[in-house]
Amino acid sequence: MLARITKIENGYRATFERLLNHPVEEVWSYLTDNEKLPRWFSELRVDELREGGVIKFDMGNGTFEEMEILELKNQAVLEYTWGDDIVRFELSNQPNGCLFVLKEKITKITDHTPRDLAGWHVCLDVIHALLDGRTIDRKEEWKIWYEKYVKEIEKVTQQ
């Protein structure tokens, strides 16, 4: 399911939702455990898991971008800076697992925005697949979702 992209004050918000048949604790570990993070986002590492702490993004050239953790509620909320934007993961218990929500506050739509949204979409699908013991072809999936997000961004920016 595509993210909902809405115009908000000072930018846009993309909201991704997944209902997973796995407990919150298990899903949370994919967001915060440095053993599991690289399985779905190889460039990320948690440096300090606390409000005001740091998540590092490996730029691949020997440098790291530090992203500040703005909010942390154990097994419920992880929010951090993402360049000029903000990424927020929310987990909540459901009868058969958990609701997994990713909200990205996007300051400015650029040509790169559909690429990022397709990337987040596939990352969430990868987490879901890993939890289920499956694999997916990231590159092929990304191509499919990228085209869809190009169209979604066009719709939102023409409103």
Rank of each mutant, 00 (worst) to 15 (best):
G97K: 03
T107K: 15
D33Y: 09
E154V: 04
K56D: 04
Y12A: 01
Q159E: 11
F64E: 14
E66L: 09
E104S: 04
L20K: 06
K151P: 00
T32S: 14
N10T: 09
G62Y: 07
G97S: 09
R88E: 03
L37D: 09
F89W: 13
P95I: 13
E154P: 00
E26T: 14
K36E: 01
Y30A: 01
Q94R: 15
I106R: 02
E9G: 04
W120L: 00
T15I: 08
G133C: 09
R18G: 00
L44A: 13
K155Y: 05
R138E: 12
V156T: 15
G133Y: 11
E90Q: 14
N61Y: 11
I109D: 03
E51F: 03
L31G: 00
V24K: 05
G83P: 04
I136R: 14
H121A: 08
F41Y: 13
L102R: 03
R88K: 14
T81A: 08
M67V: 00
V77W: 04
W145E: 09
E17C: 08
D85Y: 02
V150M: 07
I109L: 13
K139G: 10
E68G: 00
L78R: 12
L99H: 15
R88A: 03
N34Q: 11
E9R: 10
F64D: 05
E152L: 13
I136L: 15
E51G: 02
T63W: 07
V54A: 08
E104W: 02
E17L: 07
R88P: 00
E9D: 11
W40K: 02
N61M: 05
E90G: 08
K155I: 02
Y146L: 12
I144D: 08
I153V: 15
L44C: 06
I8T: 15
V77D: 05
L99Y: 06
K103R: 13
K73C: 01
L91H: 02
G52V: 03
G62C: 03
N34T: 05
G62V: 07
F89E: 00
V126T: 15
L99S: 14
G97Y: 08
L49F: 07
G52S: 05
H22N: 13
D84F: 13
I69S: 04
S29W: 05
D47A: 11
I127H: 05
E26L: 12
T32Q: 09
H112W: 13
E35M: 04
T32W: 09
C123H: 15
V27L: 12
W145N: 04
D116H: 06
E66K: 15
C98L: 10
Y12W: 12
D116G: 04
L37H: 13
G97E: 06
A129W: 11
L130F: 11
Y12H: 05
R138K: 12
C98E: 01
W82Q: 01
R4M: 02
N34A: 08
